[in-house]
Amino acid sequence: MIVRIMGEGQVRLDDVHLTELNKLDDELLMEMESGDEEGFRRTLGALLESVRRLGTPLPDEALEPSELILPAPDASLTEVRELLGDDGLIPG
């Protein structure tokens, strides 16, 4: 799967990591619903760091279709709310 982190680029990530990422996504969703800005910042950072750690960065000149788009690390709670689907940032 190709994941884009807005403002950073794309990462190739094996589907086996989706369970781990979905746990962070569920936590992020709960923090957003409760308005926990500090928790939101912490969990968004952990989610993005997990994608970076588990994935392989694609070269900047590569333009593959992204199957998943994640917000930039400095995205606001409001901006991320606009990106959310019914399943959170990560479907499943």
Rank of each mutant, 00 (worst) to 15 (best):
I2Y: 09
V3S: 05
M6V: 15
E8W: 01
E8P: 03
Q10E: 09
Q10V: 04
V11N: 04
R12Y: 05
D14N: 13
D15V: 01
D15H: 00
D15Q: 06
D15M: 02
D15P: 01
H17K: 07
L18P: 10
L18T: 07
L18W: 13
L18E: 12
T19L: 13
E20G: 04
E20K: 03
L21C: 12
K23N: 01
K23S: 05
K23F: 07
L24V: 05
D25T: 09
D25M: 01
D25L: 01
D26V: 04
D26H: 06
D26S: 08
E27L: 11
E27T: 06
L28K: 02
M30C: 01
M30Y: 03
E31Y: 12
M32K: 06
M32I: 15
E33H: 00
E33F: 01
E33G: 00
D36L: 10
E37W: 08
E38D: 06
G39A: 15
F40L: 09
F40R: 00
R41H: 07
R42N: 14
T43Y: 04
T43G: 13
A46K: 00
L47I: 09
L48V: 08
E49A: 15
E49D: 14
S50M: 04
V51D: 00
R53I: 01
T56I: 14
P59D: 07
D60S: 06
E61L: 12
A62D: 15
A62H: 10
L63R: 15
E64M: 13
E64F: 14
P65C: 04
S66E: 04
E67L: 10
E67F: 11
L68T: 09
L68Q: 10
I69E: 14
I69N: 03
L70P: 08
A72C: 00
A72G: 08
A72M: 01
D74I: 00
A75T: 05
S76M: 01
L77I: 15
L77P: 02
E79V: 05
R81P: 04
R81S: 08
R81M: 13
R81Y: 07
E82P: 00
G85Y: 03
D87S: 14
D87T: 14
G88Q: 07
L89T: 12
I90W: 03
